[in-house]
Amino acid sequence: MAGKAIVVTSGKGGVGKTTTVANLGTGLALMGRRVCMVDADIGLRNLDVVMGLENRIVYDLVDVVEGHCKLRNALIKDKRVENLFLLPAAQTREKDAITPQQMKEICEVLKEEFDYVLIDSPAGIEHGFRNAIAGADEALVVTTPEVSAVRDADRIIGMLEAHELGAPKLIINRIRPDMVRRGDMMDIEDVIEILAITLIGVVPDDQDVIVATNKGEPVVFDRRTRSGQAYHNIVRRLEGEDVPLMQLDNDGLVERLRRLFNRDARRRKAQ
């Protein structure tokens, strides 16, 4: 049975597309799925370093397109998990080194061999973006709860719909429960209300992600971390499981006090 190709995109740069692809790819492979991650960010490749596979690249996406090697030879096998592969982007080429049609063909071939083909899209809405979405069956939009990121996400959602990649799902990244509690950050509900699309996951802002990236080991390997747990939950939702959103508020003293007071207030009101 053919797998499906999912593009991870955002419009704005730096919101965590690559980290998302690395963690969802690794997470899906940890659940026994056959996964190929494709770095479509030609000229600014990063998925290889986030995955810790940068030293093993021989061929890349453009080499495949130009016939310098077979697709199979360009795939890098992750040695930590079964059935996890990376097709790296070319670093010294321009974004127009491949066409949407070529990208589509590569995705078609990969889908025959893998359950999931995860495509890491470059930031922006130009050629690179159009390449990244060309072969995709579904789309995930990553945003942070900031004005600029949500605005760009809205634009991307519009463009995905124009390319018949309707019903993209949203990942809200780097949410900070403490700031949400203070009313200084948009909440999950706020972002969903504005963008009006389906949510597939929320990832809390977590220092462990930076530590993991420093080491080249996706944080999903360590499910004791909050972000690792969050990515694992998204993976299960991709697999069709119904997983409730994780409780983001860590039980700090202030939070417990607030709940106590609120409950008291409600009781008094009820009397």
Binding site: V147, V150, R151, R182, G183, M185, M186, D187, L257
Partner: peptide
């Protein structure tokens, strides 16, 4: 603020975003 009654800067973010998206 401690009890989360104050709106904070989130309201500003939401209002500005709504407006800019209407134009976009």
């Amino acid at each position: 603020r401690l009890f989360g009654r104050d709106e904070g800067s989130k309201k500003a973010a939401k209002d500005r975003l709504r407006l800019v998206l209407v134009h976009d």
